[in-house]
Design a protein around this nucleic acid. Structure first.
Length: 210
DNA sequence: CTTTGGATCGTCT
DNA sequence: GACGATCCAAAGG
């Protein structure tokens, strides 16, 4: 695992996230991913906001109505990347959790640039401030250069150059927790976690609205 | 700062 | 044929 020239390799050594940690319930795994690092080539983002999605018991999940072509990765082994296309133009990335056959994933909702931000700015020309780079699930994918071709990538083995690591940064001292964003079903379940006070965390559109 | 509406197409019924 | 696990530009305070 390297991020040469990024400044990351001059800090504490990076350590891959183990598959056993991810092989648990999405609601257990989700908060554990806060402050971890998503790496792709030179680009590194620190995850500051996540959401848990379950399977047949979660009406907001893509896996609620069983396995289909799109959500196949969600039903596979943990540690893989589930990338889906939405709103006709956006990609969003999840970390698959739990055992084979049991759908579950953690949506990576926001992060902030730790390295390779030059590539992120290039990938996101509409960004004006640094916090515009990764402050949303589709922004994060765009900034990190992730699209549908990365669906099914192994984040533990890093078989397609995408990896999930930790640099020893402890869990955030204050973790926010509340309802998930942008869903219409099961909107009362508090399955979203974020680093309290981080400016990259998405804000729920005031009042209602999806 | 906030609010609003439009873009755009793969997926599943 | 309908609907998104969203983002952005524009307009108003």
């Amino acid at each position: 695992v390297t991020a040469t020239g990024t400044g990351v390799d001059s800090g504490p050594a990076l350590e891959g996230i183990g598959r056993s940690l991810l092989d648990q319930d999405p609601s257990t795994v989700a908060p554990l991913l806060l402050n971890t690092l998503l790496l792709h080539g030179r680009r590194v983002a620190r995850i500051v906001e996540v959401e848990a999605y379950h399977g047949s018991l979660d009406p907001a999940s893509h896996a609620y109505r069983g396995q289909t072509r799109r959500n196949t990765t969600m039903f596979g082994p943990s540690g893989y990347l589930y990338v889906y296309f939405t709103y006709g133009m956006h990609w969003c990335a999840n970390v698959v959790c739990g055992p084979v056959g049991q759908a579950g994933a953690v949506l990576l909702r926001a992060g902030f640039p730790v390295a390779g931000s030059d590539e992120m700015w290039a990938a996101r020309p509409s960004a004006r401030r640094e916090r515009d780079l990764c402050s949303g699930p589709a922004k994060l994918c765009q900034a990190m250069g992730l699209d549908g071709t990365f669906d099914g990538a192994d984040l533990v083995a890093g078989d397609r150059g995408v990896r999930l690591c930790t640099d020893g940064t402890p869990p955030p001292p204050r973790v926010g927790n509340g309802p998930r964003i942008g869903i219409s079903a099961a909107s009362e379940r508090p399955w979203r976690w974020w680093v309290e006070g981080d400016p990259n965390v998405s804000v729920r559109r005031s009042a209602g609205r999806r």
